[in-house]
Design a protein around this nucleic acid. Structure first.
Length: 241
DNA sequence: AACCAGGACGTGA
DNA sequence: TCACGTCATGGT
């Protein structure tokens, strides 16, 4: 692969779609000014979020809930968790699986995810956000990955968007996109593809956050099973080498 | 009325 | 390692 092709792809995606402002926060968490400024919880051009543990937790829980699930349904589940007073590690651990499952029903897989959220809550109880600062990104990643219900992508989402660590997120859209460009093979592992990005682009947090967001947006447009775009996906993108 | 969504786990080869 | 079945609601 050409060494700088992933940089070039980022430039093209960024020019095509502009700033995304991931990870989205629920509107109810934001101040009135922010509410007026942001649409649908996105905060394009601003990388100061999350600003408190509540928002860090929301991103982390959202990362679990959005596994193979549309964000729209996750947002309902997040609101439901808050409305039912379940939105803290302590409350989650003190609640029954059935109660959590009921609250997150809209996100699907609710029985599994109720357990997953408890496992995550147990982790955050053992390692509050403040104490995580002293660990390396790799150390946190290994810890997260060992939690039942947290795979590589979910771990990287938490690292990148909740903990502000440069850990590149590889999702299904990223894989389909790179496969279509014949930059990776279908049998390449998650870590292989992640390493491809991390060795090609500069270690910059906004860049990491934006790049994944852009890949999701572009992926939804051209690489969904039911794509809603009609343009040639290769039109503005580099030809395969 | 099938089919899909910002995955992860358990199982058997 | 890896391919495959399972988990489940909400929208097209």
């Amino acid at each position: 692969m050409k060494p700088h092709i992933l940089q070039e792809i980022y430039r093209l995606l960024s020019a095509e779609y502009g700033s995304q402002g991931w990870w989205p926060l629920t509107i109810s968490d934001l101040t009135e000014d922010e509410r007026n400024l942001f649409s649908n919880g996105y905060h394009p051009g601003s990388y100061i979020y999350p600003q408190n543990d509540q928002q860090r937790l929301e991103i982390s829980i959202g990362a679990v809930l959005t596994q193979n699930t549309q964000w729209k349904n996750v947002r309902k589940a997040l609101q439901s968790l808050k409305e039912n007073g379940l939105f803290s590690p302590e409350k989650l651990l003190a609640s029954g699986n059935e109660q959590i499952a009921l609250a997150i029903k809209s996100a699907g897989y609710y029985n599994q995810k109720a357990i997953y959220l408890k496992n995550l809550a147990r982790f955050f109880q053992m390692f509050p956000f403040k104490t995580l600062e002293q660990f390396t990104t790799r150390e946190i990643r290994d810890r997260l990955f060992s939690i039942k219900g947290i795979g590589p992508e979910t771990a990287d989402c938490i690292l990148l968007y909740a903990l502000k660590r440069c850990s590149f997120v590889v999702d299904a859209y990223t894989r389909r996109f790179l496969e279509a460009l014949e930059l990776v093979d279908s049998r390449d592992s998650y870590n292989t593809i992640q390493h491809l990005f991390q060795s090609s682009i500069e270690q910059d947090l906004p860049l990491y956050q934006e790049y994944h967001a852009l890949l999701v947006l572009h992926g939804k447009r051209f690489y969904s099973r039911k794509p809603f775009g009609w343009h040639d996906p290769f039109h503005t993108l580099p030809n395969r080498e």
